[in-house]
Computed example of a mutant assay.
Amino acid sequence: MLSHLFWHEPDIVGVAESAASIAELDAALTARMTRGLPELLDRCADAGRRVWVVGRFEENAMRAGLRAHGLDGRIAVVAGRLGLDGDTFGEVSVASRTARLLDVDPAHCLLVSGRCDVLHVARHSGMALLGVPCGHDIRKWLSGYAPVVSNLRRLGEALSARNEHE
């Protein structure tokens, strides 16, 4: 929505962005945590993997949500929408921008999403893609865009097993 307003309704985009930021903060603070997320983050930390949280919400709202769930200490980078910066509209744009700013080759990144639209847009980003059903899109739909793991607990187990074999 903000991207459309940014390009087509510049007179009202500032008000819309303010309203969106308030709604995103409320959503981030009241959202239910995805089952298995704390354990996955622990396994990533144990394996020395840096975790980035990338999303379409305003970055400060995302930080507040992670802090509210006690997850902020496990996250290396939080990247989201930065006001009306058009380069930060959409998860894939933010992920690509973050990789560029941190000088990380996208080929060394794993983008995990439960949304078909994100996986569809990300297929040309150079990042490895993985679908995880988490309440938005179902496994069958996700599998049209990327390999799918059944849940975050299984992903954590796979990452731990891989780390043991390296």
Rank of each mutant, 00 (worst) to 15 (best):
M1T: 13
M1E: 11
F6T: 07
F6V: 02
H8C: 07
H8V: 09
H8F: 09
P10N: 08
D11F: 12
D11S: 13
I12V: 15
V13R: 07
G14D: 13
V15C: 10
S18V: 00
A19T: 04
A20T: 09
S21L: 07
I22P: 00
A23S: 12
E24H: 02
D26T: 14
A27K: 10
A27D: 14
L29H: 01
T30I: 10
T30F: 06
M33Q: 15
R35H: 12
R35L: 11
P38Y: 09
L41S: 03
L41Y: 00
L41D: 01
R43Q: 14
A47Q: 02
G48V: 00
V51L: 08
V53K: 08
V53M: 14
G55K: 03
E58I: 10
E59R: 08
N60I: 04
A61R: 01
A61D: 06
M62C: 07
R63K: 09
G65L: 05
R67G: 08
R67Y: 06
A68Y: 05
A68C: 06
G70M: 00
G70S: 06
A79E: 01
A79Y: 02
G80I: 07
G80L: 02
R81E: 02
L82H: 06
G83Y: 01
L84P: 01
L84E: 04
D85W: 04
G86Y: 05
T88S: 14
G90I: 02
S93H: 11
V94A: 08
V94H: 10
R97T: 03
A99P: 07
R100M: 13
R100V: 09
L101Y: 02
L101E: 14
L102C: 08
V104F: 04
V104Y: 08
D105L: 13
P106F: 11
P106A: 10
P106T: 06
P106E: 09
A107R: 13
A107E: 13
C109M: 09
L110D: 05
R115V: 09
C116H: 06
V118F: 00
V118L: 11
V118Y: 02
L119C: 10
L119A: 11
L119D: 06
V121Y: 02
A122R: 00
R123L: 06
G126R: 00
M127V: 05
M127D: 12
A128V: 09
A128H: 14
L129A: 04
P133G: 05
H136P: 00
D137I: 03
D137L: 04
I138V: 13
R139M: 12
R139V: 12
K140S: 15
K140H: 15
G144C: 12
Y145T: 06
A146H: 03
S150K: 01
S150D: 15
N151I: 04
R153N: 15
R154N: 15
L155N: 09
L155P: 07
L155C: 10
G156D: 03
E157V: 05
A158S: 12
L159E: 13
L159G: 07
A161R: 02
N163M: 07
E164H: 12
E166H: 14
E166A: 15
